[in-house]
Design a protein around this nucleic acid. Structure first.
Length: 284
DNA sequence: CAACCCACCTGACTGC
DNA sequence: TGCAGTCAGGTGGGTT
């Protein structure tokens, strides 16, 4: 049964999506358990309980939101975000016995022989239920920017979108109204791969740099996705959380260590209150 | 608008 | 061991 890494950036969320889809698609919710009325925002408890009896028909993803789609009359969907510390996983039901509730476990969807569980210590996550035909207009989804793994994301778009922007390129990459799915780790990593300093004004990147950066973002996300798949396969045997992906990080978390490419010590700075890592030797 | 700051929470880790 | 302080992967809302 799939589980979830404790590092929910886009590749991790996508890994969760495909794992949950394989484990749960076509199955009917038999019972719902909700252990608190809110996470980051209030949970519409009646609508969540109304999922009982419905079949899970699909799971979509937009940015780092998972959209669990259900069948039946006026089909609803559940909007789920893992926040910083959320995990979703499936546990088999042995006979009638439900598993013990974990610390910080906030809700469960019971299916006939398995249960989908949500654990989130920091409670920055989201659970909402809305009619399926209105989900794209949901206030949390309506203003979101481009998906970096879509065909429409490329250097030409990045160049056009950054013109006249004075904010640092790293801040631009993490602004969900422009581009989604690039979190704090992958923003530093993609800029390292592209050889671009995170402090550069976005609007001053050249067209060639935008091409390199767009490619670097996609490569970084795809590599992490591939690593996620590996971890997920291992997980089936381990039945324990492996903790994190084995993606090699070029700069993230490596302050004062030698750059793997040029040997210059990696620097750590703070942008928008978040740690940024870069190599002063090979990022210009 | 654009850019930035802050809050929301708990847990892990560091240094005294 | 204990304890205080720091930091953490996200991101919407508020302020300048």
């Amino acid at each position: 049964m799939p589980s979830i890494p404790a590092m929910p950036e886009l590749p991790e969320v996508e890994t969760v999506r495909s794992g949950l889809l394989a484990a749960l698609a076509g199955r009917r919710v038999q019972r719902v358990e909700l252990y608190r009325p809110d996470l980051r925002w209030p949970i519409p408890t009646a609508r969540v309980r109304g999922l009982a009896g419905r079949r899970l028909t699909g799971i979509a993803r937009r940015s780092k939101y998972l959209i669990l789609e259900f069948g039946g009359p006026s089909p609803p969907c559940a909007l789920v975000h893992l926040g910083m510390s959320g995990r979703l996983f499936v546990t088999p039901l042995r006979g009638r016995a439900a598993p013990d509730r974990q610390q910080h476990e906030h809700w469960r969807l019971f299916f006939a022989d398995r249960v989908l569980r949500y654990v989130d210590p920091r409670r920055f996550g989201v659970l909402d239920v809305v009619p399926k035909d209105r989900v794209s207009a949901h206030r949390l989804l309506a203003g979101l920017g481009r998906e970096p793994l879509d065909d429409t994301f490329d250097g030409a778009w990045l160049f056009a979108a950054t013109r006249l922007r004075t904010a640092p390129i790293k801040s631009f990459l993490m602004d969900g109204r422009r581009l989604v799915g690039v979190g704090n780790i992958y923003a530093s990593e993609a800029l390292f791969r592209a050889g671009i300093r995170p402090t550069r004004a976005a609007g001053r990147l050249t067209r060639a740099e935008c091409d390199r950066l767009a490619t670097a973002i996609q490569d970084t996300l795809r590599d992490a996705l591939a690593a996620g798949g590996t971890t997920l396969r291992d997980y089936r045997r381990a039945d324990e959380d492996l903790g994190s992906f084995q993606l090699d990080l070029g700069v993230y978390g490596r302050a004062r260590e030698a750059c793997r490419r040029c040997g210059t010590p990696v620097k750590r700075i703070v942008q928008l209150g978040r740690a940024t890592f870069f190599c002063p030797g090979c990022q210009r």
